[in-house]
Design a protein around this nucleic acid. Structure first.
Length: 265
DNA sequence: ATGACATAGGTGCTATGA
């Protein structure tokens, strides 16, 4: 079973690439972020034609998240945004998912964490507030659903191994101690960082600035993550970053992260 | 200290991202 997350930076612009990628990789479950379109503009017919069903929470211009699942997947108990936070921004979607031919249900949480802009800013304070609410809600979700995956654009590097220039970017946005403590707190709930498990040496990034030839120079950050609860992490077989999509014309600035799980025993 | 790129909204340029 393949789980994937991708910040598409406008689903309108990236739809052809998304459809290509779905056909190539055929992931079972995909979390998308930064749709940048209102609910009524979600391209469901194209996604259905590619063999997927979807649930989404859109927003005009900014944010927006979706979960895609292979057709025939049972999908229920859909949660849009955090129930314990008053938030006009479309940043989270969760559902209980059981793909065809799989004899278990997974709780899947797809999220677009706030950017935070700069330490000390109002947006940074909002990011911290959002992270607190996420952790409280997630603790309850984990006790209800032992088989849980939290994936998306976290906008947080776990540590210096996730940063191309750790000294130059020390305590800048995505790299502050305060943000990293929040990510650690999520892991402490009993989640495991899939890509860190398969690539413990670090230096594997998921985002590169559009400017200054950052991608060819591999000046990137790892800010997109797949976190697995114990029973799922025990079955982790592979996790990697699909850098090929970042090499195409008109790419998203983020590349997808894909985790492969062995079938349940 | 600032900009570089990209996207949306809207037709100037600003807001936002990471």
């Amino acid at each position: 079973m393949q789980l994937a997350t991708w910040n598409v930076n406008s689903l309108n612009v990236r739809l052809p690439q998304l459809l290509d990628w779905l056909a190539q990789r055929q992931p079972d479950i995909v979390a998308l972020q930064e749709l940048k379109l209102p609910d009524e503009a979600f391209p469901l017919p194209a996604i259905q034609a590619a063999g997927y069903d979807a649930v989404w929470l859109g927003q005009k211009t900014y944010n927006g998240v979706a979960l895609l699942v292979r057709q025939g997947t049972q999908l229920h108990d859909v949660q849009r945004n955090l129930p314990n936070l008053e938030d006009p921004q479309a940043r989270l979607i969760a559902a209980t998912v059981q793909p065809p031919g799989v004899d278990e249900a997974l709780r899947v949480v797809g999220a677009y964490f706030p950017n935070g802009q700069a330490p000390g800013s109002d947006k940074f304070a909002y990011k911290m507030q959002w992270l607190q609410a996420l952790r409280a809600w997630l603790a309850a979700q984990l006790s209800q659903y032992p088989k849980l995956v939290l994936m998306g654009d976290f906008n947080i590097t776990r540590d210096d191994l996730d940063v191309w220039d750790p000294d130059g970017l020390r305590e800048t946005i995505h790299c502050t101690r305060a943000e990293r403590e929040q990510l650690q707190a999520l892991l402490a709930l009993g989640l495991h960082d899939a890509l860190r498990t398969t690539a413990p040496q670090g230096g594997v990034y998921t985002w590169w600035d559009y400017r200054q030839l950052a991608f060819p120079k591999n000046r990137g950050l790892r800010i997109d993550h797949i976190l697995l609860s114990d029973p799922l992490h025990a079955r982790l077989r592979a996790c990697d970053v699909d850098r090929a999509l970042r090499k195409r014309p008109q790419p998203s600035d983020h590349a997808p992260v894909v985790a492969t799980l062995a079938p349940s025993a």
